[in-house]
Write a protein that binds this DNA or RNA. Sequence first.
DNA 1: GTGAAAGCGCTAACAT
DNA 2: ATGTTAGCGCTTTCAC
Lengths: 343, 343
Amino acid sequence: MVTIKEIAEKCGVSITTVSRVLNNKGDSISDQTKERIFRVVEELNYVPNAVARSMVTKRTNNIALIVPDISNPFFADIAKGAEKTCVTNGFHLFLCNTDMDKEVENEYIRVLRKRLVDGMIITTQNNEEYDVIFEEMLDSNYPFVFIERYSDKLKNVPGVFASNIEGAYSITKHLIELGHKDIAFLTGPLVTSNAHYRLEGYRKALTDYKLPINPELIRNGNYKVDGGYKETKALLRKKIPFTALFASNDLMAFGAYQAAKEFGLQIPEQLSIVGFDNINMPGVIEPQITTMDIPAYDMAVKATTILLDLIEGQTPKESKVYYPLQFINKGSTAPITEVKRFA
Amino acid sequence: MVTIKEIAEKCGVSITTVSRVLNNKGDSISDQTKERIFRVVEELNYVPNAVARSMVTKRTNNIALIVPDISNPFFADIAKGAEKTCVTNGFHLFLCNTDMDKEVENEYIRVLRKRLVDGMIITTQNNEEYDVIFEEMLDSNYPFVFIERYSDKLKNVPGVFASNIEGAYSITKHLIELGHKDIAFLTGPLVTSNAHYRLEGYRKALTDYKLPINPELIRNGNYKVDGGYKETKALLRKKIPFTALFASNDLMAFGAYQAAKEFGLQIPEQLSIVGFDNINMPGVIEPQITTMDIPAYDMAVKATTILLDLIEGQTPKESKVYYPLQFINKGSTAPITEVKRFA
DNA sequence: GTGAAAGCGCTAACAT
DNA sequence: ATGTTAGCGCTTTCAC
């Protein structure tokens, strides 16, 4: 590896001069010297060592985004928002995919905060566990922000959040107003705060409308297609009557749709299905699922902006931002009618 | 930031001792000292600085994977294969998404090779351009491997490749054997080697079967859903008769499907459609598109293995690997019948 | 069983 | 217009 020292020697100047020229701090360097340096740099194919550099500047100009599932278009959107904001600000974004594995997530956080990146955006789904590491980062003033992660213990962490309770409430209300009384619910992984909140919104709506909460209709999913499929199959096999199904995210709703189709049900005539996230699945002609839109891209832009402020040592204008969600009707729900009941 | 020096002082030992204990090189250190060090590390919430460390070890144990489009499940699969292999080998993977932007890709490569990562897996789609940087990396012995990127100028770069020509040939042959003569073709971005090869396979099959190549039926796409949609629309509007369509990747095939549906065509009765990649789109019940399976996950595992060998200074067992593709019939094609012609 | 010293490649005062 | 020096936080000889 060729170093700055070799360049300096070959040019007959000090390494300081080379460093100045390379960092555009060479106002006072003669054009002649500059030119010589550039020529030798080219000649020797010299690449400055960013590690050595960040050792003294204490900056890398890189940040990391930790996501639980890169296959989920919701997180791809988040990645795009973060990426764009980084590029605009001269930063680079490294994506880390944990595959919903707490160990992997923890490992990434541990590695990254050893000054490999200047800060992190964490979209983890895992709550309550590993709060220790977050507290440590808080203690040592390491910059990080959350997206969609809450924890009572970590009230001081900046972040952007979706109004999950309200969103789940209003989409449940939509079903109730269509006349549905037996509304099945598929949760996300319950280690997750948003899974909890969405469940809470659902329960609240039922309660407000004086409908009973049937624990048999509430099943634990995993925010993935296969989970939605499996739990819906299980539900259908049990022959407990329900006329609508609320999946805590779109991926599970897709799985539910598939299971219902295989069971021979017409959607929405025999079963209304709703999801959550409004993910953009390119090429999905069927199913189209009524859902709540979460402004993932905008949230990521905001989260990144907050993080960059933090890194620059500035107090962000807003450090906790809540985003309202929007109901998107795609026609996968219908009013209840007795004749369409299947069980 | 608490440093190793502070730990040493607080423990009344040298930094050497602390370093030894922390790196499990302390066989000859008394348990008493060890214990004291661990206690103080805990107490002060000390995190070793990986940047300083890699400065002397010249290793980061991180690699990067550069992908053109993280929303494409094909690349999500690749990411998973690479990630898994990294974890197994004590490495970490940073994903970089270029959004098919050559500038962004180039920038990532430039930044990363400044020793931020020990090596890169590049799944770029951009050929021919920026070969300079690859030659530079080759010259300076920087470890990197390609997935699905060819360049005559870069024959020496290790990598894993899909047999695109053969794959495109055999899927075209499938259409020809069903009786289709007018087969439209949507290319990928032609800066891409695999886009070229797939086109080549298509042409070769037509030629071998003595069918004319109609340039009007060949349209340049972008490997995205919207491109497939747009080009198919254009094709349909032009009223040039064709009874089958070969989209260079599944994403475009989805777009084509959508366009054909909107045009009122029955698939496959009135139009046979095939894609390429065999991506797993969660939730896509329809369309199901006949395609060529590319073993993305396995290819990524192999690419990562080669890269890690390179990083360790070993000569990889295989440095260029070609993967055969597999025809997957999902029923989006049908034999041609006169009555079904639409134009 | 432990420490001193050198050095990784670079930047940033502080000179001159 | 350029050089000298110190130092970033760590690992690694070499010594005792």
